[in-house]
Amino acid sequence: MIILIARRLILSLVTLFIISLIVYVGVEALPGDSATGYLGQWATPESLAALREEFGLNDPIHVRYINWLGDILRGDLGVSMVKRKPVAELIGNRFRNTVVLTITSALVGIPLAIILGVIAGLMRDKLPDVIISTTSIVAMTLPGFVTATVLIYIFAIRLEWFPAITLVPSDVSVIELLDTMLLPIITLTMIMVAHILRLVRTNMIDVMVSDYVQMARLKGVPARQIVFKHALPNAMLPTINIVALTLAWLVGGVAIIETVFNFPGIGKLLIDAITDRDFALVQGIAMILSGIYIALNLTADLLSLVLNPKLRTARGH
């Protein structure tokens, strides 16, 4: 068991290292460099050369990579040459905003998805299931920005309940952000619920026809106890990983939703950084997002390890 956890941890670190390579090399491979981005249209060959000398941009790529990685390990994400500010400072509040946005969506979405999934699974092919399943397929199929646009049209433009886009700076308090966050949260929740719900529903259906549920029924266990004690824990096990994947997707996919709503989060910052050729910022954000992605998957793996007796009690491996 401990060996298993240690192995997963090491594997995660290796993955993170490989990602750092890809992120760095990938971003560096883009045409132009930070110096052209920094000087923009005023760039002359002389000033470019001077700037490259100053920031060590002429060093071979592996030297620059090692320096960059060393800085990151020390907690220094570098300096954005476009915005002329440390990357960490730029990310700061926006990261907080994104985290609040995604965590709120997850806190609403995951329990909702499980409840709806269980209801749909238990009432298979009956009216509630048909309604839930059809809605979830629609929510899954529509791209996030379409859903967002439709919601903006209905709630912001027609009903005028919420602002259509955020016009506040990134450093306001969370309370002030709240009403501008509602529409992005609803959008994210809808997409997330759809994915998780469908899996919970399928698992629930499988588990409800299993021999052990039939056995529980024939041993006189009341229906409610069958669902909560015998069926649900077994239906949830395969769901844990999908929940983690969906959350991880949420962190990455939030970029588009944030852009649509002009929400001051890390995703919007990433899109802006790419347009501005702000290499240090892109690399910094990419590393943070990858870190979250890997951490979530690791948590899911460990969680299913703890919750699944078959894995927990396995010897060796």
Partner: peptide, 23 residues
């Protein structure tokens, strides 16, 4: 529910599948 298990009980074919794996 009050009759099953109390007055008439089943012993199924595949005991491995008939026991809930998480309990």
């Amino acid at each position: 529910e009050t009759i099953r298990g109390r007055q008439i009980a089943l012993i199924p074919q595949n005991a491995g599948d008939a026991l809930t794996p998480t309990l």
